[in-house]
Structure formats: C-alpha cells, structure tokens
Design a protein around this nucleic acid. Structure first.
Length: 278
DNA sequence: ACGAGGTCCTGCGAGC
DNA sequence: TGCTCGCAGGACCTCG
C-alpha cells in the first residue's frame, strides 16, 4: 500500500485542489470500505461542506471539514486518491469507491481495486483518541534518536516487525522497513531490544532518510500506487533490496535473499551485509 | 504477551 | 492457450 511517502505525496497533490472547496454530489459506489459510519451519514456529512484542510497522519489521508468532522481514508494496498479535471471514463470508474464534485469540472475520486482500504468519519474526540493511540511521526523535527531508541527497544520482537508497528512509529511499511534495515546494515530478524546503540542510531537515520528520499521521488510505484495527480512515483528505481530477490547486493554483490519468516511478510536482505552481530 | 494463522478483496504472473 | 495457485505495498481479529 501507500506507506508514509506515498500518502505524503498524495496529500501534497490533493491539498491545493481541495482546500477551501465545497463538496457536492458525493457518490459512494462501494460500502464495504466504511468503518463505523453509515453510507447515509457519510454522504450527508460531506455534501455541501467545505474542506478546511487535507493532511497526512501515518499512512492515512485526513480531510478536515468545516463542520469539524474528519474523513480519514486509509488506502492500504491498492487505494488511489486523485483529482480529475476531465470527464471520467468507464475505465476510470471501474474501481471507484467515492466520488466528490469540487466545482469547475473537477472531481475527486477514491478508487480501490482490492477494497482493503477504509473510510472513517471521526469527530474531534474520536480523532484525538485515534491519533494519540498510534506512534509519532518519524519525520517530525522533535522525533529524536532517543525517542526512536526507546520505542524500538521496548519489544523483543524482530526489529522489522517493530518498525512496521504503527503503535510504535507511524508510517513505515514493508518496502521502507526493508530498505532502512539494509541501509543501516541491521539484520531484520534481530530482536528489537537487543540492537546496540550504534545500530539504533544508524537505523534512526536511515528510516528518516529513506522516507525523505522517497517523498522527493513521489513514492514507489510497484503496481497500483499513483500520486494525487494520477502519475507513477519514481522511487522504485532507487530500491536497494525490496523486489530485488536474487539480484546482487549493491554493497557487496552477494545475491539478495527473501524470507517470509517475519510476520509472514516478504523480507529481502543481504545476509552478508546484514549479518546478525549479537 | 507472543506467535501463528485467518480475514477482508481482486488481479496478476508463474508454472503446469 | 487456459487453468490453478500463490502472492501482493496493511491491519484487524481469534486462538492456543
């Protein structure tokens, strides 16, 4: 799915096109993405309301309305959020979940092939309860290495799994967990609470730099991901391990290997550069 | 508390 | 060519 850099790209593209605009003619084509909100209440809460802001939190796009309610969309694996300034074709609409008219011929669309994505509608209290329940943003200025080290070392689970735990740090998914661990030369299966200080320092730096570089590249398009202007990202050409099983390590030329030992997710790494060192 | 595994969905590519 | 199978960027749940 879109991870932090992809949702950040989407939100940067969408914000200028949505902020200050009044939403008209909301159409919900699929209801299985709704969580704790009825179709009727969602549509009524959108229709005629102005968008106050479009922001990212973790891997979610957050649309704050003038009513104070927030529509939160988690694109998960295959969700795409785009504003179109042309007439939509049948092909465009094939996987449409939510359509909103923005005026001036512009249309916002959330489409989602697998529909593992979700739409929430949260009031102020529910929003704060949620945002307080997940981890801090790794790219915030005040997210320092001590905070990172403390959050990682509180678990003896595999460091890769802990990196991807949204309750510990927000926004890191499978691609960037693989990349950051490779860059930091840390074995993904190491128990998080057994990393040395120097490894935690490296990992902290690499998590932040890989996320920043991916944002600069407008995210990673493997298959489904599109930016808010329906374009592909370009970070896929800069991946060093993810999707490169059997190819040579960029550092030592050893063939990269993939396991599914950690939480059943694909972990690609260099057993030589990321040797366990405990 | 932890790990394992199932669940929600559809599409695609590999292999036969 | 056409079929079945496993896998896919996520996160939630239950069970033992």
């Amino acid at each position: 799915m879109p991870e932090l850099p992809e949702v950040e790209t989407i939100v940067r593209d969408l914000a200028p096109q949505l902020t200050g605009h009044t939403l008209k003619n909301p159409r919900l084509l699929k209801t299985d993405v709704l969580r704790k909100v009825s179709r009727k209440r969602l549509l009524a809460s959108l229709n005629g309301h102005r968008v106050a802001s479009v922001r990212r939190r973790a891997k979610h796009a957050v649309f704050e309305l003038d009513s104070g309610l927030r529509m939160v969309i988690q694109p998960r694996m295959t969700g795409v959020l785009t504003v179109y300034r042309r007439r939509l074709t049948q092909e465009d609409r094939k996987y449409a979940v939510l359509l909103l008219s923005l005026g001036g011929g512009a249309t916002f669309m959330y489409r989602d092939v697998r529909r593992l994505g979700t739409i929430w509608l949260l009031d102020e209290r529910q929003w704060h309860a949620y945002t307080d329940s997940i981890g801090p943003e790794p790219l915030e200025d005040d997210f320092d290495v001590q905070q990172f080290a403390k959050r990682m070392s509180g678990s003896r689970q595999a460091i890769k799994k802990v990196l991807m735990d949204q309750k510990r740090i927000a926004g890191v998914g499978n691609i960037y967990a693989n990349e950051a661990l490779f860059r930091a030369r840390v074995d993904p299966s190491r128990p998080a609470n057994r990393l040395r200080q120097d490894e935690l320092v490296r990992l902290y730096g690499e998590v932040r730099s890989v996320l920043l570089e991916a944002i600069e590249a407008n995210g990673t398009t493997i298959r489904d991901y599109r930016t808010g202007t329906d374009e592909s990202g370009s970070f896929q050409s800069l991946l060093q391990v993810y999707g490169r099983t059997g190819e040579p390590c960029v550092r030592c030329a050893t063939r990269l290997v993939t396991t599914h030992d950690i939480d059943g997710r694909a972990t690609t790494f260099c057993w030589r550069c990321q040797d366990r060192s405990d």
